[in-house]
Amino acid sequence: MKPMVTSILFATALTRNSTQALKYTASLAQATGAEIHVLHVNEPISDDARITFEMFILNEETRKTAERRRHEMVRQLLAERQARFWAQFEGEDAGIRDLVTSVEVTDGHPAEVILRRSEQMGCDLIVLGAHDHGISHTFLGTVAKRVLRRSRIPTLIVPYSEQT
């Protein structure tokens, strides 16, 4: 019996390689009819940043507003990139966008949230993009390594490509 892919979690860090990883996700979803769940996880604000935030923004309500605004800005960026990506598709391929059943932006430690949400949503596959090569990046990146080590379902890491 062949394993079926019916639900794909596409986890995006909103990096340059995210577009390449989404291309693979869309292609797999089109071939299998799987639904696509898009997830972006905002890393928690460091303790140093939080202390600085509290020093310069004394009003608690203003701090909460700033945190909400951070979420809104990421949601807006994700929506813009998604719109630009899906606008490339024409004709029959335009229907692939209908396979996206959820788009979520949340806070937390990315690997843990990716693994938890993939399980909660009953996903059969996780797709992530690898970091580009360079002095400041490892090939896979910390999040991808953590997801690969702990995932109970197949995980596809799409290599970085200059052709995104």
Rank of each mutant, 00 (worst) to 15 (best):
A31F: 08
G129V: 00
T101M: 00
L99N: 02
S7Q: 08
D93A: 14
T52Q: 06
Y160D: 07
T25F: 01
R150E: 04
I96R: 00
I57F: 12
A66G: 10
Q120T: 08
F139I: 10
A87Q: 13
A26E: 10
T19L: 14
S18E: 11
K2I: 10
L128F: 01
V143D: 06
A83G: 04
G129D: 13
E92M: 08
T12W: 09
I45C: 01
G33D: 07
R81M: 08
R84H: 12
D98R: 10
K23E: 15
G122W: 09
G91P: 12
S27Q: 05
Y160I: 00
A21R: 00
N42M: 11
Q88P: 05
A79M: 06
L148S: 02
G108D: 03
T19N: 08
L148K: 01
L78S: 00
H37T: 02
K64A: 00
E72K: 10
D47F: 09
R63S: 06
T15P: 13
E92H: 07
S102T: 03
Q76R: 14
Q30E: 13
A94D: 03
P110Q: 03
T138Y: 12
L128T: 01
A111C: 02
P44A: 07
T12Q: 15
L78E: 00
H37D: 08
F85N: 05
I135H: 07
N17H: 04
T62H: 12
L78G: 01
I45M: 14
E61H: 12
V113C: 05
S46E: 05
M4L: 11
T19H: 04
A130E: 04
N17D: 06
D132C: 15
E162Q: 14
R116C: 03
M55V: 13
L140F: 09
T101A: 11
S151V: 02
A13L: 15
Y160V: 00
S161F: 11
S151L: 05
A13R: 09
R75N: 10
V158Y: 11
T138S: 01
R50F: 05
Y160Q: 07
H37L: 03
E43F: 06
T6Q: 09
D132K: 15
G108Q: 04
M55G: 15
E90F: 03
V100F: 04
I51E: 12
I45S: 09
K23C: 05
T138D: 09
L28I: 12
R50W: 08
R97K: 09
G95F: 07
V147I: 03
I96D: 03
D48T: 07
H131N: 12
E162N: 14
T106V: 05
H71F: 11
A83I: 10
G129F: 04
Q82P: 12
L78P: 04
L14S: 03
N59G: 03
R152W: 02
R63W: 00
H37C: 04
I51A: 09
S18R: 02
S27G: 08
R81V: 03
L115G: 02
T19F: 07
L128P: 05
F56M: 11
M1A: 15
L156S: 06
V147H: 04
